[in-house]
């Protein structure tokens, strides 16, 4: 952020800007950059998802658009969606119906503000970083509930109610799994969490103690549920609920839900990398030549791939199994992780 401010300061015509204006300009640029990253996520990961799904099911996936392995498929989809008619059902609550996708989009975008891409390269260097990310990403739940309710559609309502129940439930093991890491770091600042993992593979939080290893998997499972992806895609089970909470949405408003879904997928993967997998630090000294931001993104994309692998391998769970897994298995295990890791930290001093 400071480097960005210095860059703007040296730009022609910016010599007499006040510190406040400089700061605001830099923040707006960062926000634009994050929004671009989000939009790129949606484009790159939809293509990647279809290719991964294809190869896992022994077929090719998109092959025609753009010649080389159908790389332009997602771009073509985006262009097509731009020209789609926008239909708002006559029975719907129009105000909420229009507002919901924007809220979902905002919830995704805001969380990106505290992601530490490289040393010093974070839009908002908040002391409450991780807490802030979890807090603002809850906006997505409100947006989904709003979308389902305002559609006045039975499928949408079921999908939204299920989605909200699932997302609030899995938020607890998700947050609990990060508690041992915060105990080690002694800070919620996202940069501090990454800096504390300096010094090779053994210092990554996932390998610090056995309980953290378990906590990572708790986080991973909960993050799949948080992003509403298979095997936990209850809110939009296409075989029973049509499309879940966004059944009535079309065109650009649907695209917002879609964008937010893939942005959240990358977001939870980046948080997993940041909290457990060493953030921007390379696993081996040999790989230190790679720029930190690139290391961070490569790790994030690998986590996304892992997420897709799980999605296209495991069958969907039932609603009761979903709740059983969260409340009776994951929350007790996550609590034991906090307890066990605390004891290990006390013994080590």
């Amino acid at each position: 952020m400071d480097a960005l401010i210095a860059l703007i300061q040296n730009a022609p015509g910016a010599a007499n800007m006040s510190a406040q204006a400089l700061h605001n300009t830099a923040a707006a640029l960062m926000a634009t950059l994050m929004f671009t990253v989000m939009a790129l996520c949606a484009i790159v990961f939809t293509w990647m998802e279809r290719k991964v799904a294809g190869f896992l099911q022994n077929r090719y996936g998109p092959m025609r658009t753009g010649r080389w392995h159908g790389w332009a498929q997602a771009v073509a989809d985006m262009l097509k969606i731009l020209g789609k008619e926008d239909i708002i059902p006559a029975e719907a609550d129009k105000g909420l119906f229009v507002f919901a996708p924007i809220l979902v989009l905002l919830g995704s975008l805001l969380a990106w503000a505290a992601i530490p891409w490289a040393p010093g390269f974070v839009a908002a260097d908040l002391d409450l970083g991780l807490f802030y990310i979890f807090a603002v990403s809850s906006l997505v739940i409100i947006g989904i509930l709003m979308a389902g309710w305002s559609s006045n559609n039975k499928w949408a309502l079921y999908g939204a109610a299920r989605g909200a129940a699932q997302m609030v439930s899995y938020e607890i093991p998700l947050a609990l799994a990060t508690i041992p890491v915060i105990m080690y770091t002694g800070s919620l600042n996202t940069q501090d969490i990454v800096i504390a993992q300096q010094g090779g593979l053994a210092n990554w939080y996932i390998f610090r103690d056995p309980f953290l290893f378990v906590a990572f998997w708790m986080y991973f499972i909960a993050s799949i549920a948080e992003t509403n992806r298979g095997p936990f895609d209850m809110p939009e089970t296409e075989s029973e609920l049509v499309a879940g909470y966004h059944t009535e949405y079309s065109g650009m408003r649907f695209a917002f839900f879609f964008l937010s879904e893939y942005a959240n997928l990358f977001l939870v993967s980046l948080i997993a990398v940041m909290v457990f997998l060493g953030g921007w630090w390379a696993p081996l000294p040999l790989l230190d030549v790679i720029p930190p931001a690139l290391t961070f993104i490569i790790k994030g994309v690998m986590m996304v791939f892992f997420n897709m692998w799980v999605r296209w391998t495991l069958p969907r769970v039932r609603v009761d199994q979903l709740m059983h897994l969260c409340w009776k298995v994951m929350i007790p295990i996550a609590l034991i992780c906090v307890l066990g890791s605390g004891i290990i930290q006390m013994v080590r001093g």
Binding site: M30, M34, L109, A124
Partner: peptide, 8 residues
């Protein structure tokens, strides 16, 4: 910065 993110 967060507020600017909302606006953007």
């Amino acid at each position: 910065t967060v507020l600017i993110f909302v606006l953007v």
